[in-house]
Amino acid sequence: MNSALRFAILLAALVFTWLAWSGLFKPLLLGLGVVAVSLTLWLSARMGLLRREVFALDLTPRMFGFWAGLLVDIVKSNFVVARIILSPSLPISPCMIRLQPPLPGQVGRATLANCITLTPSTVTVDAHRGVFLVHCLTRESARETLDSDIGERLHRALGDR
């Protein structure tokens, strides 16, 4: 995907968002929309969001598969944490683990860190220099996070980004 195509996709997404949210087609609002879309495109290009490694809108079927798997993980660990909170003895065994993510790129690491945080019972508290410091609610969740193949799945979905 070349850079002109990435620009066109972002432009289409922004125009659609503006029209869907305002729902009005008066000249003033359309003019404001043109200004807002141009400003956003310029800022995105200036921030480097249109570079191949960073651009997030080229969705592949594999990425959707990864999100679906993540959703299953989130639902499962939601039930685990809810049971822990509701049990009278509060059976937690908090611990910190150090995790070396199997991802070469910055985008992949950032995504993985956020996915780990999004799953209840694990929170990434530090991701400096590609080593994650993950706080886990129980020893079991720590063990599961260390054994999990979510990093490899993300690597397959994202490539070397």
Partner: peptide, 8 residues
């Protein structure tokens, strides 16, 4: 500056 902050 121009997204160079991605490098740690």
């Amino acid at each position: 500056a121009n997204g160079s902050d991605l490098q740690p």
